[in-house]
Simulated scan of single mutants.
Amino acid sequence: MSVHWVYIIECDDGSFYTGYTTDVERRVREHDRGEGAKYTRGRTPVELAHRERFDSKSAAMSREYEIKQMSRAEKERLVEDEG
């Protein structure tokens, strides 16, 4: 059974990027090397700020969409709750 993740990385400019993956560590490395999403390419280095685990891709994708609709303040609270 696959594990699905939604993650938030903080970019070097302080902005957040939210994504979906089945391998968080690999995906963060890709972003850090400039091989990830176009948004993060000029904003390295990046740092993993938050992640959530799901048993299905559809649940993870729904949560990714939900997070992407959040305000900056809501995302900051989500990241702070992680620590």
Rank of each mutant, 00 (worst) to 15 (best):
V6S: 02
V3F: 14
S71L: 02
R51C: 08
I8C: 05
C11F: 04
D55T: 09
E66K: 12
E64W: 10
E74W: 03
E80D: 14
I9G: 08
E52K: 14
A59N: 11
S15H: 05
G34D: 00
S71G: 12
E64I: 12
E47V: 09
Y7F: 11
R33P: 00
R29P: 00
K57Y: 08
H31W: 00
K57C: 01
F16I: 13
W5E: 09
D13A: 06
K68I: 03
S56I: 11
V79M: 05
E74C: 01
T40Q: 00
G42M: 05
G19T: 04
R41L: 12
A49C: 08
I9N: 08
G83H: 10
V3W: 14
R51Q: 15
D13Q: 01
R27D: 07
K38M: 06
T40P: 00
H50A: 10
A60F: 05
G14T: 07
E25K: 10
S15M: 06
V24S: 04
R72V: 15
G36H: 01
D81N: 14
E76N: 09
W5C: 00
K75F: 03
P45S: 03
R63Q: 13
D13I: 04
G19Q: 04
R51A: 11
K68T: 12
E66P: 00
E66S: 13
E52D: 14
S71H: 01
R51S: 14
V3S: 15
E52F: 01
D13P: 02
S15G: 05
R26H: 14
I67T: 05
E10R: 15
A49M: 08
E25F: 02
T18L: 07
V6T: 10
R77K: 15
M61G: 06
L78Q: 07
G83W: 09
D81A: 15
Y20T: 11
S71R: 07
Y65D: 14
E80K: 11
Y39R: 06
E10D: 06
G14M: 04
G42P: 00
D23T: 03
Y7V: 09
W5G: 00
E66G: 09
I8G: 05
V24R: 09
Y7S: 04
A60I: 02
D81W: 12
G36P: 00
A49F: 04
S2A: 13
C11N: 13
D23H: 06
E76T: 10
S58W: 03
K57D: 06
R29M: 07
D55K: 12
E76S: 12
M1Y: 14
E47T: 10
I8F: 03
S58E: 12
L78S: 09
H4Q: 08
V79F: 10
G83E: 14
K38D: 15
V28H: 01
S58M: 06
W5L: 08
Y17F: 08
V46I: 02
F16M: 11
T40V: 01
I67G: 02
R43Y: 02
W5M: 10
L48G: 12
I67Q: 04
H4W: 15
V79C: 05
G36E: 06
W5R: 12
A73G: 12
